[in-house]
Write a protein that binds this DNA or RNA. Structure first.
Lengths: 199, 199
DNA sequence: CAATATAGCTGGACGACGTACAGTACACAA
DNA sequence: TTGTGTACTGTACGTCGTCCAGCTATATTG
């Protein structure tokens, strides 16, 4: 059971390994369990060693959140129907969120991610919205509606009911259909006849 | 600048005063500033004195969140159109949330409140849903959709845009109309022809 | 291949946090 | 008046994020 290192010796740490382990810790035991010390212990390193690879705990979490968004599949760039493209994008995002249930509360608390992946997805969405005839202020508004709707839906598809009474677990498939329905309503409203343009 | 008390002397603390000051602190400087020590200092008391009135920091926050929901106005119990009643209820909730922007992230993180007020509102909603022909599992699902939608919407009506580019602030009135539209779509979907009943 | 610079680590510490424990003195009931 | 309960104080414990000062394995240079 050798795990102590003498000063100067290397542990083969890397930014990627730190992020991955943080993600793993988050998945196993939630946010409260994600402690710089716990993370360090799992990596068999002193706590401060992490700071050679990560600026702070906050940016660590931000980075984990953004990393996951890499899994989201963007629709083909030349897709015909931009509204359908948006539907695909949000549905894919929803699935990715469901695949990382443990992270959903964090997305909620931070209202999305802000890293390069999030940026990239945002631009794709804005592009699709523009092609659907929505631009300027209205487009940014629609963007946020869609994001919040998706994260919000994932949030309660993920967790125990708010009101404890009765609490029969809703099957995931039914929830997914429900998500699709709501998403369709929203998209219809956003890109529909009353959609506003730049002013 | 006398503020120190000798042991045994009273400070006129009360549960209500503690909650109110906590709320105030939250409003002024956000969650990170809400510290038992900071709260105690503002009340001119030793930190542990708070524990005579509040079980823990967690329940303190829970209680603050639930307290605010007292301001939500429920529709008349004998309202004709239950869907309209739901609309009224959620709109009132939305307004209350906007009136306490600082708390919205907390509602988000906890996915709603759980105290007596939240309970009461939940029951009203279930009643209205039942009268709209939605009950059982579907009703609880609808409940959560409506709650998440409302909190989620309040969340980005409250805060800076997720994607920093362009960032022109959306006028509150426009957002409110948007909230209403989305809410109508949701309610139509929930109480609409395809609504499911108990199984 | 030797000398030097860099950077990945360790040990230790600091300040802030939530909260438990034990004691003190006031308020009120008897 | 005496007794009892409770609202406080002082103090302290354990944990957290993070900083500073070394030390040394490795990368870089000549």
């Amino acid at each position: 059971m050798e795990k102590r290192r003498t000063p100067g010796q290397r542990a083969g740490l890397s930014r990627a390994r730190v992020l991955a382990t943080a993600h793993q810790l988050l998945a196993e035991s939630g946010l409260d369990a994600l402690t710089m010390r716990a993370l360090a212990e799992r990596l068999e390193v002193a706590p401060n060693a992490l700071y050679s690879h990560v600026a702070s705990k906050t940016t660590l979490i931000d980075d984990v959140l953004d990393d996951v968004l890499d899994e989201v599949e963007a629709p083909a760039a030349d897709i015909e129907d931009p509204t359908a493209g948006l539907h695909e994008l949000m549905a894919s995002t929803y699935q990715v969120l469901l695949a990382h249930r443990d992270l959903v509360p964090l997305y909620l608390a931070r209202q999305g991610a802000r890293g390069p992946n999030a940026q990239r997805l945002g631009e794709i969405m804005l592009d699709l919205l523009a092609r659907a005839g929505v631009s300027g202020t209205a487009a940014h508004e629609a963007l946020r509606v869609l994001i919040v709707y998706t994260i919000g839906f994932a949030a309660f598809a993920t967790r125990p009911p708010i009101h404890p009474g009765a609490g029969s677990p809703v099957p995931a498939e039914e929830l997914s259909e429900n998500f699709d329905s709501g998403l369709r309503w929203l998209l219809a409203g956003i890109a529909g006849p009353t959609a506003r343009h730049t002013d």
